[in-house]
Each structure stands twice: as C-alpha cells, then as structure tokens.
Nucleic acid binder design. Structure first.
Lengths: 140, 140
DNA sequence: TAGAATCCCTCTAGCAACTATAGAGTCAAG
DNA sequence: CTTGACTCTATAGTTGCTAGAGGGATTCTA
C-alpha cells in the first residue's frame, strides 16, 4: 500500500508543497516513484511525516526535528538527549513568554498615556515613542 | 550639523546595514550625500531612525511603523488611529502569549512522561510525538 | 473514446526583518 | 604615502514555508 503526495499530505494535515519541502530539507527520505514520476509514500514514511508535523505543532525547529529523527534510528541508546532537547525547547518558549510579558507591560504603559481623544500633535504615545527607550528586550 | 551612517546607526543603536535597509523600505527619506557619496543624516532624520528603532524594540512591524510615521506628519488630526494601532498590537502580543502558554503545557505533559533514563526505543516522549495530536495552536 | 477536472511534476521567486559577504571607493592620521 | 577605519553597491543567506508558471499524468464523465 502506498500513498501519493496529496494523500500523504492530507493524512499528516499539511500541504503538498510542505511535504516536498521536507524532502528537500532532508527530513523525509527520497520516496519511490510511480511510472508517471509521482512520489509514492509507504505507511512508515507517512508516519514520519506525521511525526514531523506533530513536532512542528509544538513549534520545534526543523533542526531539532532532524535531531529527534536521528534519535529514532538508534532505539537502543539512552533517551537522555531527547529529554534535554525538550527541556531546552521549553526553556526557549519560557524565554519568549517573558519577553512578551515585558513587551506587553511597556505597551500598556505607553497606551495609558493617551485616551485617544487628543490631536496627533499632542498625543503622548507618539512622544513616548520618540523618547529614548534604549536597548530593550528582544522577542526571538 | 550632519551625521554619517555609522554615527546615525550608533546613536539609534542599530547596525549600518539596518539603516540602509530602512531607507530601501521607505521608512527613512533618501538622505543627502557628501562629495564622496556618503549618506548624510540631519538631526531630525536621526530622530526618525531612533523612533523606528524604539517601535521595533516594542516588536511593531515595519508596516505599523510606516503607519505611525504617516500619523506624525499630520499633527492636527485626531490620534484615535494611533491608539487603535497600539491596542491591536497589544492584542496580537496577548494572542502570542496564549499560544505559547498552551505550547508550554503540552510540552510539559510530554516531558513528564519520561525521566530520561530509558532507552530510546521505550522513551514515551518519542511515542507521544508519533501519536496523532492533530491540529494544534499556532504561534504567529 | 474524447474532453475536462484533478492531480502531480520541476523550477523559481516571495514573505519579514534583517545579516553577512565581496569587491570597491573615500577619508583622516601618522 | 600608506594604513586603517569608514563607506559604497549588489547579492545571497536566514526560517519555514507559500505561490506561481508551465507543463505532464491520471481519472472521471458523457
């Protein structure tokens, strides 16, 4: 039993172009081809695609996913590396959350300086944006 | 008094390339040039650059910044639009925060399924990632 | 069996907001 | 007059796709 690219994409919940892109990026093996040069995916290849999509839905980078796929190929080894990768990913998400939290506070402060009923010339938001608020946090 | 691009960038806290990029994107006016074809920025142009950088530090898009710059050019009008823009930006940040919050919870759940002392073959994290967790939240 | 609809192919360019390089020119100090 | 710091343009890379052109394959319907 094999699947054409559209079926595989449908099963994994992504677009056809995305599947081809993953192949190009080395996340999926080069699939078999039909007589008419259509890609043919096996069950396990479709599962690998679903794995990738699931990781992506957790916002992992393709590099991280590549690493996880490599782990999958050595089932005998310790899974400490997998745990570390997940921990680091959680860390990076918390980092982004903190940055966004700060950002929101800054924006609220700014916003509180104007009711929206001034003229632009006297709007304290614009003045606040002109002032030097050097070197703030970044959102990665 | 005028500034060369390196000075302007230094004052605004960004790289020289970024200044040229903003010019190309239409966020900065085409500056005067010296005899040797170097860009020369006026005080007010440096201030505009700082304004842009301050907005960027609040994670506003260049499109939003362009809009704010347009507002600045009509000081007599109402500033309601500025307030709306900021409110929408705060909304989009809160949206991202919510998505990240959900993501973190999902990753914590996944992580809790393994102590990191298993073999890869029996690691529940990998199994969790293979399972169908269809159609989750996106982080914009 | 013909034609239409739907799928698939490759290749290339675009998005956002820069960053980095190559290869060249300008300018001030020693 | 040479060194070094600065600047110029033009182009390509980053991430994870998405969209399009211009064609071929397959399948459904009349």
């Amino acid at each position: 039993m094999s699947y054409r690219i559209g079926e595989a994409a449908g099963l994994a919940g992504c677009k056809v172009e995305t599947v081809r892109y993953y192949e190009q990026m080395g996340l999926l093996p080069t699939p078999a081809r039909s007589g008419g040069n259509f890609r043919l995916y096996s069950q396990s290849q479709v599962e690998q695609l679903s794995f990738i999509r699931h990781c992506r839905s957790l916002d992992m980078s393709l590099d991280n996913i590549r690493e996880l796929l490599r782990f999958r190929e050595m089932p005998g080894k310790s899974c400490a590396g997998i745990n570390q990768l997940i921990d680091e990913h959680i860390g990076s998400i918390e980092c982004r959350m903190n940055a966004l939290e700060q950002l929101r506070q800054q924006l609220r402060d700014l916003r509180s300086q104007c009711s929206g009923e001034q003229s632009i010339g006297s709007c304290q938001i614009l003045h606040g944006l002109s002032a030097c608020g050097c070197h703030s946090a970044e959102v990665s």
